[in-house]
Design a protein around this nucleic acid. Structure first.
Lengths: 161, 161
DNA sequence: ACTGAAAGTCGTTGCAT
DNA sequence: ATGCAACGACTTTCAGT
C-alpha cells in the first residue's frame, strides 16, 4: 500500500466528501469538473485503496444520551509485555471508548470515553477499565466543552501526480 | 432542542448509518424492517433535528500525507477572561487541529493535531499555537499508535418512546 | 484516463390508511 | 406514523475516443 499519489481531482473529491459524505455523484462531479463516470471511478478507487476508510453518519453524542465525555490518561505497569496487547484488545471491545492512542509522555495511553452520566462513567471505570490487567495509573479529565471535533483531515495542495 | 425520544427504529437506523453512511435507503429500510418511504422520512428527521450532524467520508490521515498525530495539553494564564474566547476562535481556524476540548484537570485544553512530519509540527507550534495570547504551558504527546478511532456513538437500547 | 449514452436502480413525493 | 405506487433522478456499466 504505497502512497497513492493523489492528483488535484482526488484531493478535491476528498475535501468535498469529508464534509458532505452523501452528496450525489453527479453534483460531486460537477463541483470538481469531471464527468460523473470519471468521478465515480475515482471515488471507488479511493475506497478500495483505503484512502477513504468508510462513510459514516456523524451523530451528536448528547442527542443520543451520551453527554459526558472524558479524556483518560492510562499508565500500565512495566512488568509484562503482554499487558499492552491485552489492554488494547479489551479496549477495542468497549463501545464507550471512542478513541485510544498509545502516546509518548507520562501516560501510556490516552482515551476518549463517552458516558450517559457520572454513574455510568463510574461503572465504566469499576467494571471495565480497572479490571484490565496491569493498570498502574488512571487519570480522568472531563470535557467541560467541546470546542472542535472534526473528522476532516486537511488535504495538502501538493502538485505531484 | 429537547431529547428527540428515539424509538427502536431510530436507534437501529443510527447504528447502521454510523457504520455505513452510504448504504442505500432501500437496504437500510430492509434491515430495520420498515418501508423505504418510512425509513427515508426518519433519516431526514434525524438530520433536521441535529441528531445526525452530517455525513462524512472518513479518510486515513497517513494516506493523505498526515501520518503524525499529537495530543497536546494546553494551559492558559489566568489573567484575562478574553484569552479563552480568543484561543478557541483561533483554534477553530486551524485545520490541523482536529479536536479540541476544554477539560478539568491540570490542562485547560486537550487538542488532537495531525501533521505531515516533525518539521510541520514544529511550524504549527511556532507559527500558530505559540502565537496565541495567554498561553502558559504546552505539552505535546505524540501518538505512537492508534489503537482505536471510532466515530460511532453507542446507542443505548432504552425502551422509552 | 476520459466522455457520452444506455439500462437498471434508487430516492422522493403524494395519497390513502 | 405507515405503506404503496409512480415519476424523476441517480448510479453504474460499456463502448468509443
Amino acid at each position: 500500500m504505497q502512497p497513492p499519489s493523489l492528483d488535484g481531482h482526488d484531493r478535491r473529491i476528498l475535501k468535498v466528501l469529508q464534509q458532505q459524505g452523501r452528496i450525489t455523484n453527479q453534483e460531486l462531479a460537477e463541483r470538481i469538473g469531471l464527468s460523473p463516470a470519471a468521478c465515480w471511478r475515482r471515488v471507488k478507487a479511493l475506497e478500495e485503496e483505503g484512502v477513504i476508510k468508510r462513510f459514516a453518519a456523524l451523530v451528536d453524542p448528547a442527542r443520543v444520551g451520551q453527554p459526558l465525555c472524558a479524556l483518560v490518561m492510562v499508565t500500565l505497569v512495566r512488568h509484562h509485555i503482554d499487558n499492552t496487547a491485552e489492554f488494547e484488545n479489551r479496549i477495542l471491545q468497549y463501545p464507550e471508548v471512542l478513541q485510544c492512542y498509545a502516546t509518548t509522555g507520562n501516560a501510556d495511553f490516552v482515551l476518549r470515553v463517552v458516558s450517559e452520566d457520572m454513574a455510568a462513567y463510574d461503572r465504566f471505570l469499576n467494571e471495565k477499565l480497572f479490571t484490565l490487567p496491569g493498570i498502574s495509573q488512571v487519570s480522568s479529565n472531563f470535557a467541560l466543552r467541546e470546542i472542535k471535533n472534526e473528522t476532516a483531515i486537511p488535504i495538502p495542495q501538493g502538485h505531484r501526480v
